[in-house]
Design a protein around this nucleic acid. Sequence first.
DNA 1: GCCAACGTTGGC
DNA 2: GCCAACGTTGGC
Length: 155
Amino acid sequence: MKKDPIQYWLLKSEADCYSILDLKKDKKVAWTDVRNFQARNFLRSMKKNDVCIFYHSNKTPPGAAGIARVVKVAYPDPTQFDKKSEFFDPKATKEKSIWDCVDISFVKKFNKEISINEMRIDPALQSMIILQKGSRLSVTPLSEREASRLISLGS
DNA sequence: GCCAACGTTGGC
DNA sequence: GCCAACGTTGGC
């Protein structure tokens, strides 16, 4: 049986909310709270061992901060059922789950964070979805070229 | 803090 | 099914 090729993803997180250092400390975390259908669909197509570039948004400047790896594929996001959670969704039931999460583990923190400005001027990164005007998705696919460029810039 | 751009909701 | 109003995201 042939192995599926690795896919690459970019995960946004607000830096002061959950950073790559938090992930380093936790080693592994459930990537919950995604409440956008397009982003959820990307979560659902993630496979075990896929590589995720961890991006810090909402800071100056924002940028790519490290690498994570998918350790568990999509399953129902428990926060949608939790009445006390700000991500509670009254339309979701255990039988009809709406939102998914994956588990990711820490791989490495970049030696140098790659700012969005650097990405914008790098020819290999022009095609990144988050650099397109108006793009707000918190989960986006990366091409192998984009991912390896980011990894070499950050290492 | 501002605001452009997007997604969602709800009236019709 | 359209679209105005609203809420949110996220770079600046």
